[in-house]
């Protein structure tokens, strides 16, 4: 297949890191918009009326732990321990799903409390920022699920550790973005 590369880094891994560098700008712009418009909302409800810190702390914790599951899945597939690979991949995807469930609950609760997307400046910036992140989590869950299915079908083993590593890089980046959003949106409310 591919020969050795000039930098010694596999092409796909380098591409994922490059993509992550580009994604920094995507989320950076979204975050900049949220921060600029913080405190400029003119129409109720306001962030402090709605944001539920204890609840979101729990889902944040779940997403953080999914990153641990992810590195354990990578370590497992690297030593070709496929039983453990399946377990950790499945748990990573499951934790991602729990986070998404939490976000679904949060969004529908906000809408129920009178904050649909088009309500005000807060709803616009909040839903588009956290929604973009949620879409990234959803994409990651689908990706991890295909890896899980391939492992179950015996089509993924230690020879494909690089594939798991790259999916993991994406997953951790999504987690890192949430670390920032959790602080900026919820704790600096």
């Amino acid at each position: 297949m591919e020969g050795p590369t000039s930098t010694g880094i596999p092409n796909r891994k380098l591409a994922m890191w490059t993509f992550i560098g580009s994604e920094c700008m995507l989320f950076g712009t979204l975050i900049a918009t949220y921060m600029i418009y913080r405190g400029r909302n003119l129409v109720p409800p306001y962030p402090h009326d709605l944001l539920n810190i204890p609840f979101i702390t729990v889902t944040t914790f779940v997403l953080l732990m999914s990153s641990l599951m992810m590195v354990l899945a990578l370590a497992a597939v690297q030593r070709n321990d496929l039983r453990a690979t399946k377990l950790w991949l499945g748990l990573t995807a499951l934790f991602g799903l729990i986070f998404l469930g939490g976000q679904y609950y949060e969004f529908s609760h906000f809408v129920h409390e009178g904050l649909p997307l088009s309500r005000n400046l807060f709803s616009s910036t909040f839903f588009v920022l956290t929604g973009t992140h949620g879409a990234h989590v959803a994409g990651g869950v689908i990706w991890l699920s295909t890896l899980l299915v391939r492992t179950v079908n015996g089509k993924l083993d230690a020879r494909h550790a690089e594939t798991v590593e790259i999916a993991g890089l994406y997953w951790h980046f999504v987690d890192v973005v949430w670390i920032i959003l959790f602080t900026l949106i919820y704790l600096l409310v």
Binding site: G21, C24, G28, T29, M35
Partner: peptide
């Protein structure tokens, strides 16, 4: 890889 990531983080932070 660190340089690529740091470059993205740096420019993004500077823009924010």
């Amino acid at each position: 890889l660190t340089a690529i990531f740091a470059w993205g983080v740096f420019i993004a932070t500077a823009i924010v």
